[in-house]
Design a protein around this nucleic acid. Structure first.
Lengths: 176, 176
DNA sequence: ATACCGGTATATCTAACTGATATATCTTCT
DNA sequence: AGAAGATATATCAGTTAGATATACCGGTAT
């Protein structure tokens, strides 16, 4: 994040949420210790320029050495961590519990995905209208496209799954 | 897993990998301590039936109390953990590093997804041929469908992204 | 004037979790 | 008999999420 501009830990968290929230997140419990250790390793440095006396506010900037380390990190093969999808786990074991509850989980998850999709589409429209032909924007757009595709796929899966639940429980028909 | 049949910790890991590997995983570092604590809570119990003397092998079975706890857990809203996709993070910051390296990451990820997809399709065919009309099988199939849809969406995204990388680096054309 | 609230900012702890490592036994093949 | 690989349990170090604590600042409601 510090390749964009110098920031405080608090700002870093906010910026991550705003631009990478789609596929990444960091907690303060990660950020502040990391800023300290990156600082000690010389990959970033504290900008003490406008540090008002007694005010607790550290603005960090990336160093040349940090930029080099970032290049190296980008070239390293990404590791994908073990999958853990609690919704799918509950669907898988649905017949051991209340079918209605699992169906409700799916409905809720679908609503969340629809909200996510609308948010991403709004961002996409905004990016495209800016006609930003920087190479950076190109890759940002690609990650956004992944979010959009993921949300659409998930919504379609929810619809299919909800139909299966409806079949299993024809009581629903009567209520209609 | 113990709703299926009594198992050892080792078997539980193997079964999780085989049937939920698509969307879940557990490490031994989780399983063994959990078996102990579930056992202490009375949700599962050790079957000491065929325990050969001096042999270190604990087969666990679910109890009625455990089945009730499982029902409760299934009804609780699933929590989705914070996203963390290292590939997308490297694509996002691609212009800060070696474009070729990031492109290679995408190619590798695409290959993995294709392999995953083939595996899922083979399992799907096997499930469908069995014509298993148990309610259980219905929900198992749904989680598999999610895996298939996810893999296809991801492969399509990789293709699109790789085209973007090709545009950024027209050197590739010459090699053709 | 002041009390309150939300945003900014840093720090830390607990519990969960992964990946690795260690150890031992049993089975199968050569 | 020996080697290799599968079965089985245990534990540790390092990472991480989520919660909590503290404090300051600016605006606003009373």
């Amino acid at each position: 994040m510090l390749t964009w501009r110098p920031m405080t830990g608090y700002e870093i968290k906010r910026e991550i949420q705003a631009s990478l929230g789609n596929f990444w997140s960091e907690s303060f419990g990660q950020i502040y210790p990391q800023l300290r250790s990156l600082s000690e390793a010389g990959l970033i440095k504290i900008m003490s320029d406008e540090q008002p006396a007694g005010k607790v506010k550290n603005t960090y900037a990336i160093t040349d050495s940090g930029r080099a380390a970032l290049r190296g990190w980008i070239s390293n093969a990404p590791s994908n961590r073990p999958p853990r999808d609690e919704l799918l786990l509950k669907v898988f074991f649905a017949s051991e519990g209340e079918l209605q509850a699992v169906r409700d989980h799916c409905r809720k998850a679908r609503e969340d995905a629809v909200a996510r999709l609308h948010k991403y589409l709004a961002i996409e429209k905004r990016i495209d209208s800016v006609k930003n032909h920087q190479d950076k924007a190109k890759y940002w757009r690609m990650t956004l496209k992944m979010g959009i595709a993921e949300a659409r796929t998930f919504i379609a899966w929810c619809d299919e799954t909800l139909r299966e639940f409806a079949e299993a429980e024809p009581k629903e028909e009567i209520e209609k």
